[in-house]
Nucleic acid binder design. Structure first.
Length: 125
DNA sequence: CACGTGACATTCT
DNA sequence: CAGAATGCCACGT
């Protein structure tokens, strides 16, 4: 299966929209769900390029790294902080790591990892 | 066209 | 368990 950039982005958004409220998943797993396991970085790219006006909205805050860490997006930016608040608003416990700007989510408690193939995503299978 | 860079993952020390 | 080392692939410079 070959997905061009636009299709890839659509697939990502489609899946992220299916993450249940109060749950989180990882970049890597989203990549696996669209059958492109080595494209984890591009999942992040897709979300970064995502416009805030997306309709229906894409709950990007429900995607974290494989160790449950919220990517800081560099010092001076408030992205991580906003993501943390969005998650806490859904009753997801967010722990603070060593650095005060480092936020961690317990994947054992809030992780959402459906097996590939058990869900569908816009793009043709 | 070579190189560095990422909202990353996995494996090895 | 924390860090370093690799692998990865689209993009901008």
């Amino acid at each position: 299966m070959t997905l061009d950039v636009a299709e890839f982005h659509e697939a990502v958004y489609s899946i992220v929209r299916q993450i249940p409220q109060g749950k989180v998943t990882t970049y890597g797993h989203v990549a696996k769900l669209i059958d492109m396991p080595s494209y984890s970085r591009h999942v992040g790219q897709a979300l970064k390029y995502l416009s805030p006006e997306a309709d229906p909205p894409v709950p990007w805050q429900r995607v974290v790294s494989s160790v449950g860490k919220i990517s800081s997006r560099g010092p001076g930016t408030d992205g991580a902080q906003r993501q943390r608040e969005a998650l806490e608003a859904e009753n997801v416990q967010v722990h603070v790591g060593r650095a005060f700007n480092e936020f961690l989510v317990d994947l054992r408690a809030y992780g959402w990892f459906p097996a590939p193939g058990t869900i569908t995503f816009g793009a043709p299978q």
